[in-house]
Design a protein around this nucleic acid. Structure first.
Length: 466
DNA sequence: TGTCCTTTGAAGCAC
DNA sequence: GTGCTTCAAAGGACA
């Protein structure tokens, strides 16, 4: 039973997740297990391919070519550490200090100094440091939000900033690589616009679409989404869109949390303020630094002006019962009651460890395997999850535990039951028409086999490569 | 347009 | 306590 925090610390969530760690025994056994897991993965994939399309006689040469070169994570991490140390030396405020939470190190910051693969593209796992000038003025360092910030971002200087931050903000858009490890708040950024810690804070990324991008970016706005598109050379894969000079365009995962004074980096619009916060989190709203045009209507804005991505307001559809004459039969009281229920924000479940892992690794798998089908990707991720070392899994369990902890603080009265069908009028009702004597697992796996086979036949090389 | 598929883990519920 | 079910993410597939 691994002990992450030396037994002390948080009382929420306790060590329940750790139970899920199988007693794998000694390191030696674990290593062999890992390697066997890898072999198993390869075998399964190979067999899937063979089963589905035996006539897909892909040449081994081409496979070898397609396979990415062996990763040198160790060297990457060493470089990253060196880079961080160098950066720490340059830090005047000593911002670079060790993570205060054992078991919550910068666990997902591999490849800091080497975001680019040998082929020149950005490593899917790479995280790019961007300068995030935080100018938060939270009234209480004891608020859950504050604790959460400091918990999630140990390097985050959320109480200082102002002038320096603004200066840093300018610097962040500087082409100089110096901003990568800047003098302010180094924040690790995921190359796919998803921070490695994003799962902890971005339940719904789509909420943070920009509303009023600054003029200098106005011309480069996605007409569909309204999202400012980062400069994107046509010869660069969309999966690797970020060169060091463009990281400033990355929507920050804390975009829902960090006012950026209308900066394009972390655009926040009324779309991100759709949901009222529970009163559990009360921060002085007068500290909001949003320009008036960005301040959403009061009814949908928490006093912090910070939307939490876990809340999703259900779309109030123009249902026939409301639009047609049938509504005449219902009393006003019932209508208002219905409306209240509909407007009740949907608070999503906190992500578990595997979900956090998936969120981080999905893009990488997609890039590596050039697969898009989530079912197939999730199968791969599931196997990779099992192939993870105990320590690596522990990191995600720890993140998930903190996630639940924060969720509990933010939504004290929330229960998972609230999200069950009926509670929210949820759209998704999974069909459970299982046959007598047939378990869901059996049925699922049969279909899974079919689907994965299909995926394998469609993309045999990709599946093989994964 | 809505649901299903896949994965693991957390949580709720029935027995 | 055990076992089953639902939901969290994600996006293609399908009815």
């Amino acid at each position: 039973m691994p002990q992450l925090n030396g037994g002390g610390g948080d009382d929420l969530g306790a060590n329940d997740e750790l139970i899920s760690f199988k007693d794998e025994g000694e390191q030696e056994e674990k290593i062999s297990e890992n390697s066997s897991a890898e072999r198993d993965l390869a075998d399964v994939k190979s067999s899937l391919v063979n089963e589905s399309e035996t006539n897909q006689n892909s040449s081994s040469d081409s496979e070898a070519e397609r396979r990415p070169p062996p990763r040198t994570e160790t060297s990457f991490r060493e470089k990253a550490r060196e880079s961080l140390e160098e950066a720490a030396k340059r830090q005047d405020g000593g911002l670079f200090k060790g993570p205060p939470y054992p078991g919550y190190p910068f666990i997902m910051i591999p490849d800091l100094s080497g975001p680019y693969l040998p082929n020149g593209s950005l490593s899917p796992t790479a995280r790019t440091c961007v300068n995030v000038p935080l100018d938060l003025h939270l009234t209480s360092c004891c608020s859950p939000l504050m604790q959460y910030l400091q918990m999630k971002w140990p390097l985050l200087d959320v109480q200082t900033g102002n002038l320096q931050s603004r200066q840093a903000l300018k610097d962040a858009r500087s082409p100089s690589p110096a901003h990568i490890v800047s003098n302010k708040v180094p924040v690790v950024q995921h190359p796919h616009h998803v921070h490695p810690l994003t799962p902890l804070i971005t339940y719904s990324n789509e909420h943070f679409t920009p509303g009023n991008p600054p003029p200098h970016l106005q011309a480069d706005i996605d007409p569909k989404t309204g999202i400012p598109r980062p400069p994107h050379p046509p010869d660069i894969s969309p999966y690797y869109p970020l060169s060091p000079g463009t990281v400033g365009q990355i929507p920050h995962p804390l975009g829902w949390l960090v006012p950026q004074q209308g900066q394009p980096v972390y655009p926040i619009t009324t779309g991100g303020f759709r949901h009222p916060y529970p009163t559990a989190l009360t921060v002085n709203a007068s500290m909001s630094r949003f320009p008036p045009h960005m301040v959403p209507p009061h009814h949908s804005l928490h006093t912090t002006g910070i939307p939490h991505p876990a809340i999703v307001t259900p779309t109030v559809k123009q249902e026939s019962s409301q639009s047609d004459m049938g509504s005449l039969h219902s009393s006003k009281h019932q209508d208002s009651k219905k409306e209240e229920e509909k407007k009740k924000p949907h608070i999503k479940k906190p992500l578990n460890a595997f979900m956090l892992y998936m969120k981080e690794m999905r893009a990488k798998v997609v890039a590596e395997c050039t697969l898009k089908e989530s079912a197939a990707i999730n199968q791969i991720l599931g196997r990779r999850w099992h192939a993870l070392s105990r320590e690596e899994q522990a990191k995600y369990y720890e993140l998930a535990r903190k996630e639940r902890q924060l969720h509990m603080q933010l939504y004290p009265g929330w229960s998972a039951r609230d999200n069950y069908v009926g509670g929210y009028g949820k759209k998704k009702k999974r069909k459970r028409d299982k046959q007598p004597g047939e378990t869901n697992g059996e049925k699922k796996s049969a279909f899974a086999t079919y689907k994965v086979k299909a995926a394998a036949s469609a993309h045999p090389l990709q599946m093989e490569a994964c």
